[in-house]
């Protein structure tokens, strides 16, 4: 097994570069056949694998600052693949893939108990409250590589796993075992006009994501880069999505601190 090192696909999102334009969301919806509703303004019942949050520093005018925070699935590793959502699924409809680090979701296996949604603190997992529908004619532009999901099941961001499968198959046909960094990229990464999203193998020191955050293998991949942070680091979910920000209040918004910890900043 030594010759093929397990991969750990991860993402780095530079919040200093993110403009909140929403292109990542649109690219994701188009790539992954996310359904539409006439009124999709209640974000708690609408399906969107990628969601851009709008954060403010809470200071009064004119010292108010904003920051947009795109949130795909964190693909939590937890401890040894014990991610919050995977272990709770009663029907084995979701799995942590040790060879890629991606949390899968089997739509035809899910029977909609929503325990995984209760387990996920990032609201990544979303339920199909309605039958999936698309605007007229848009059904013709659905992506054939991604299955559509039926009413009553949970779905979530897959790091565009179908792209990985396609790229791997292509490489294998060409007699290669390993993928180049740019052969497998998620739709949101490629679409971001600001170049704020970087995607790659966190286990590969040659990949940009590894160089940007310098994950610490002794602390579950905690970033060594002081500008980098992960959402809710303290919960031990061990996500594979990292954020970069030069602003302290943004980094601090990534986690919860009790008052006594007031002035210190982690990492």
């Amino acid at each position: 097994m030594k010759h093929e090192k397990a991969k750990k696909f991860g993402m780095v999102i530079d919040l200093d570069k993110c403009t909140g334009c929403g292109t990542c969301m649109v690219a994701c919806m188009a790539e992954n056949n996310v359904p539409f509703r006439e009124d999709d303004t209640d974000k708690l019942i609408s399906v969107a694998w990628m969601r851009v949050y709008r954060l403010t520093n809470g200071k009064p005018f004119p010292h108010t600052e904003e920051c947009f925070l795109p949130r795909p699935c964190m693909q939590c590793e937890g401890h040894d693949g014990h991610s919050p959502c995977v272990s709770v699924c009663p029907a084995t409809a979701t799995d942590y893939d040790m060879s890629t680090g991606i949390v899968s979701q089997i739509y035809t296996r899910c029977f909609g108990c929503r325990y995984c949604m209760a387990a996920c603190p990032y609201h990544v997992r979303q339920f199909n409250w309605w039958d999936p529908l698309w605007p007229e004619k848009m059904t013709e532009s659905l992506n054939p590589d991604v299955s559509v999901r039926m009413r009553g099941v949970v779905e979530k961001c897959s790091f565009c796993i179908h792209r990985y499968q396609t790229a791997t198959q292509k490489a294998n046909l060409e007699g290669r075992r390993e993928l180049e960094e740019d052969e497998y990229q998620t739709a949101c990464t490629q679409a971001c006009p600001a170049g704020a999203i970087t995607f790659g193998d966190l286990n590969n020191p040659g990949h940009a994501v590894h160089q940007m955050v310098k994950p610490d293998p002794n602390h579950g991949g905690r970033p060594k880069n002081p500008k980098a942070f992960r959402l809710l680091e303290r919960l031990g979910t061990n996500p594979k999505v990292y954020y970069l920000s030069s602003r302290k209040w943004v980094r601090r918004a990534g986690d919860n601190y009790i008052r006594q910890e007031g002035s210190q900043n982690h990492s």
Partner: peptide
């Protein structure tokens, strides 16, 4: 009532994940 796909309710038994508390409940 509570499951999104009631016709697949038996999956909880058939494809049981023994690590899930909900499986034990069911």
């Amino acid at each position: 009532f509570d499951i999104g796909q009631p016709l697949r309710g038996w999956f909880i038994f058939w494809h049981a994940n023994v690590h899930s508390m909900l499986t034990e409940v069911a």
